[in-house]
Amino acid sequence: MFKRLMMVALLVIAPLSAATAADQTNPYKLMDEAAQKTFDRLKNEQPQIRANPDYLRTIVDQELLPYVQVKYAGALVLGQYYKSATPAQREAYFAAFREYLKQAYGQALAMYHGQTYQIAPEQPLGDKTIVPIRVTIIDPNGRPPVRLDFQWRKNSQTGNWQAYDMIAEGVSMITTKQNEWGTLLRTKGIDGLTAQLKSISQQKITLEEKK
Rank of each mutant, 00 (worst) to 15 (best):
F97M: 13
A18Y: 01
K204A: 10
Q123H: 13
T158S: 01
N141G: 09
T158R: 08
T187A: 04
N179E: 11
Q48T: 08
A18G: 09
E63P: 07
Y55P: 07
Q203M: 01
W181L: 07
R90C: 03
S17H: 09
G159A: 04
N155R: 09
Q36I: 14
L125M: 14
Q151V: 13
G192R: 06
T175Q: 12
V68N: 11
Y55L: 05
T136K: 12
Q157I: 14
Q107L: 08
P47Q: 02
E209N: 08
A9W: 15
L101Q: 00
L16S: 05
A9Y: 04
E180W: 15
E33C: 00
F94A: 09
G189C: 07
A34E: 15
F150A: 15
E180D: 04
Y67V: 01
V135E: 14
P124D: 06
A110Q: 00
M31W: 07
N26R: 05
Q80I: 04
D191R: 04
A195G: 09
Q202F: 15
A195E: 02
F39E: 02
M111K: 03
A108Y: 08
T116M: 11
Y72E: 10
I133L: 02
M7K: 01
P87E: 09
E33V: 09
F150S: 12
P66Y: 02
Q24K: 14
G170W: 06
K210Y: 12
E209R: 12
A75F: 06
G159D: 03
A104L: 12
L101S: 11
T20A: 04
R186E: 02
E91V: 10
A22V: 07
W161F: 12
R134S: 13
N155F: 15
T58G: 06
P27Y: 10
A22R: 12
Q103N: 00
A21Q: 01
Y105L: 11
T158A: 06
A85I: 15
Q46K: 14
A14H: 09
P140T: 07
M111T: 10
A34F: 01
K198G: 09
D139Y: 05
N141I: 08
Y112K: 15
Q203C: 06
K102F: 02
S84A: 02
R98M: 03
L42P: 11
I205K: 14
V135C: 15
M1G: 02
W152E: 01
N141K: 03
P53A: 04
L42H: 11
L125G: 07
I138E: 04
V70M: 11
Y28E: 02
G159M: 06
D165T: 11
A18D: 12
T183W: 10
G126T: 03
Y100D: 07
L185S: 07
P15I: 01
A120G: 10
T194Q: 09
K154Q: 01
Y100H: 08
T129C: 01
P66L: 03
M166K: 10
L197R: 06
L78C: 01
A9E: 15
I167G: 07
Q151E: 15
K71I: 11
Q162P: 13
A18H: 10
R50D: 00
Y105P: 00
I205Y: 14
E99H: 00
K188G: 10
G159H: 03
L207Y: 01
G182C: 04
K3G: 07
Y82K: 15
S199M: 00
Q151M: 07
Q89K: 11
M7N: 00
V68G: 03
G126N: 15
D61C: 00
I119C: 02
A18N: 09
P140Y: 01
A35T: 05
A9Q: 01
I13S: 11
E45K: 06
L78I: 04
K204D: 12
A104S: 02
D149C: 13
A92C: 03
A168R: 12
Q178R: 11
E99W: 00
L65E: 06
I205H: 14
A168P: 09
R153T: 15
A108H: 09
N160L: 09
L197A: 10
A88P: 02
F150G: 05
T86E: 12
E209M: 01
L5M: 11
A35Y: 13
I49P: 04
A18C: 01
F97L: 03
K128H: 00
A95T: 11
R98D: 14
A9H: 00
G192T: 12
N155S: 07
A18E: 03
I138P: 06
L30W: 04
G159L: 12
Q202L: 06
T183D: 14
P87C: 15
V171M: 13
I59C: 01
A35M: 13
L184F: 08
E33P: 06
T136N: 14
R153P: 10
Q89D: 03
Q162F: 08
K43E: 08
I119L: 04
S172E: 10
G170M: 09
A21M: 02
L184Y: 08
V8A: 01
L65T: 02
R4I: 11
D23Y: 09
Q202D: 04
T86F: 10
Y28S: 04
A85Q: 00
Y82R: 02
D139N: 11
G192K: 04
F150P: 05
P53M: 14
Q103M: 05
P132L: 08
L109I: 15
A168L: 02
W161H: 11
R147S: 05
A21T: 07
D149N: 08
T176I: 06
L5S: 02
D32Q: 05
A14Y: 00
I130Y: 15
A96L: 07
A88E: 04
K211D: 12
Y82F: 07
P124W: 02
V146A: 10
E91Q: 01
Q46G: 04
P140K: 14
Y117K: 14
D54W: 02
L16C: 12
Q162W: 05
L64E: 10
P66E: 14
F2P: 04
K71M: 07
T58P: 04
I167T: 04
Y28R: 06
E91T: 09
Q123V: 04
I59T: 03
A95F: 00
A85M: 02
A22M: 14
R41T: 12
Y82S: 05
E63V: 03
L56H: 11
A22K: 14
Q107R: 03
G189I: 01
D32P: 03
Q203S: 15
L197I: 12
K43I: 11
L10T: 15
A104R: 00
R147M: 07
P144F: 01
M111I: 14
N44T: 01
N26W: 10
R4H: 03
P140F: 04
G114L: 12
P15F: 04
Q118H: 11
E99R: 01
Q48V: 09
D61T: 11
L42M: 15
G170R: 05
D54I: 07
E99L: 06
M31A: 02
K211A: 09
D191G: 09
Y67Q: 02
L185R: 07
P132R: 10
A73M: 07
Y82Q: 15
V131T: 08
A35P: 09
R50K: 07
D61V: 01
A19T: 03
R57Y: 15
A104P: 06
